[in-house]
């Protein structure tokens, strides 16, 4: 019961995040919505593991958290440099000096 409430309380915000992702209007709004959706998905997977009594779901949740973070950073890097292979410029601390 407790976790059913938590699941319902996560699915509604997920739909809202999806709406923000569809509305945009800028690329960054969409990436933010995707990242937020992913965070809620991690929680939902963990909650579903509790509902079904399957603790191994937590490994999936951990992995999803990892993928969500790396995915967000990779998308941002791609849209800034149009290239994933480029190395950031560590010299001036904000990682964008070398790519113009």
């Amino acid at each position: 019961m407790m976790f059913a409430v938590a699941a319902a309380g996560l699915i509604i915000p997920m739909l809202m995040a999806l709406a923000r992702g569809l509305m945009g209007p800028t690329l960054y709004d969409r990436v933010l919505a995707g990242n937020s959706f992913g965070t809620k998905t991690v929680l939902l997977i963990a909650v579903l593991g509790f509902i079904g009594g399957r603790p191994d779901f937590l490994d999936i949740a951990l992995l999803y958290a990892l993928m969500n973070f790396v995915g967000t950073i990779a998308i941002l890097k791609f849209f800034r440099y149009r290239n994933l292979g480029i190395a950031g410029d560590a010299e001036n601390g904000n990682g964008n000096g070398g790519a113009t």
């Binding site: 938590a6 309380g9 709406a19 800028t26 933010l32």
Partner: peptide
Amino acid sequence: ILAGVFFVFTGTLGMLRLPDFYTRL
């Protein structure tokens, strides 16, 4: 759980309602 669901909902509502990208963060 109730507090957590409340804050998750509030945060997402903010993401929907606030006027621009920086405030949605």
